[in-house]
Design a protein around this nucleic acid. Structure first.
Lengths: 240, 240
DNA sequence: CGAAGAATTGAGTCCTATCAAATGCCGTGG
DNA sequence: CCACGGCATTTGATAGGACTCAATTCTTCG
């Protein structure tokens, strides 16, 4: 991690920074040839955010785009009176700003310590213009995001608190498996409040539901996450 | 309308079918040159659906894509037990299937009588491959969809019943204004049940809230829609 | 060790759902 | 033309799930 960041300033180790990157398999990078990877690397800069630090705000000019390389980012919208809806969590490998729009549509801040690759929008736009298949990839990612959002709309509008929690846990498990090598334990770096704001619940309901599931021996609550004990029952509820 | 449909089978009037189309200003077509419009027209076929008729189903292979030219289509997801979440309404000019994916992620059926342009996915994919700026347009539309979905997530997760209804009415007004020339009256061709399933409410709550707003003289309920009397107050609630 | 924040737990309330019934709206057909 | 039937909508009464407020308890970390 340290060397990863140190590399960003040096010309020599630049050349293999991306190659060994965790996010290489996913995100934008997955569609790039080794040569193109170097082109991207050239305009990229590794940055780090502390927990709760803001990456960007809704309405702000989108000067830079990011690929998360470690840690978790929450994406959210706010109402003037303070009500918050988290529209997604970005895990390592996820790309932020695929809209390529002038301003950000959501706000983003670090749930925990986060490392990311920052790309100036202008430079990235040039790269995309030169490489149509990069645009294709961008579109695929946007469509994937949209499908996720629609699934979340179903969850927010039509599911009960217990179903919401269960779907959330199963969804996080899947995403962690895809991003890294987790399976027995599902990491939940975000707070209960974050989970509540993602699922359209209150912190108390999240806590109660989670602990009820633990009492039922459906899950086991461990520091920093949960272990899925009765994943079968959970899958049944989620499918319902 | 009749002649519009009749034209689809003939070679002669083909050549100006799209030019006079209502959807010309929006959707995919807006980014095409006259020549490209002809290319699209060549692979397009006008089709008509009766109210409640299905355009396509979630999970089905996406053989064709559609541009709605008249009428309203509802896009939705179902839970096995029958609960339904409408993820969006497609108005004239809206493009269905911008994912360019092998299978549909949602189901779609006609709210009222609908006319649409059907394009075989394969032929459309070819056209897109040949015209990068079409892909760009596709991506822009997808991003726009995503922004709408995120706004809807905020609504579903964090807004009260009254706010949901008000935001819905204002949103529909805006979209109708953009699509056609409505302003005083907002057309609501969909049923109360559709509105409920879009806003994550029950039909009774929709009816009660709508009628309360009418009693308050905030809106006026007219056959087939509503008239916004106190749009200012509505905007204030929506902003809140 | 102690303070501050996060999470849990409890009690009571409220908004929205549920259940049930009445009313209104249309198209159909006598 | 109007009675009829079916469906959509409205309205009323009641219940319940999630919220709110409030008080502990648990973590974390300086």
């Amino acid at each position: 991690m340290e060397c990863h960041l140190a590399a960003c300033g040096t010309g020599i180790s630049q050349s293999n920074r991306c190659v060994g990157c965790e996010a290489r398999r996913t995100g934008i990078c997955a569609c790039l040839s080794p040569g193109e990877l170097l082109s991207l690397e050239a305009i990229t800069r590794a940055v780090r955010f502390a927990a709760k630090e803001t990456l960007f705000c809704q309405g702000q000019p989108a000067a830079s785009l990011y690929t998360v390389t470690s840690g978790v980012v929450r994406l959210y919208k706010l109402l003037p009176d303070g009500r918050r809806q988290i529209v997604g969590f970005a895990l390592p490998g996820d790309f932020l700003g695929l809209s390529m729009r002038a301003v950000f549509g959501v706000s983003a801040d670090a749930v925990e310590a986060v490392e990311a690759c920052r790309v100036p929008l202008a430079a990235f736009a040039e790269l995309v213009d030169a490489r149509p298949h990069l645009l294709r990839r961008l579109h695929d990612l946007a469509v994937q995001e949209l499908a996720l959002a629609q699934e979340q709309m179903l969850l927010l509008g039509r599911r009960t608190a217990e179903e919401k929690i269960i779907c959330f846990l199963l969804g996080m498990q899947q995403r962690w498996v895809r991003a890294k090598r987790f399976s027995v334990t599902v990491p939940l770096p975000m707070s209960r409040q974050d989970i509540a704001d993602f699922l359209g619940l209150t912190i108390e309901t999240v806590s109660r539901t989670l602990n009820r599931l633990a009492r039922d021996r459906t899950i086991l609550i461990v520091p920093g996450g949960v272990r899925l004990i009765n994943a079968e029952r959970m899958a049944r509820v989620a499918a319902a």
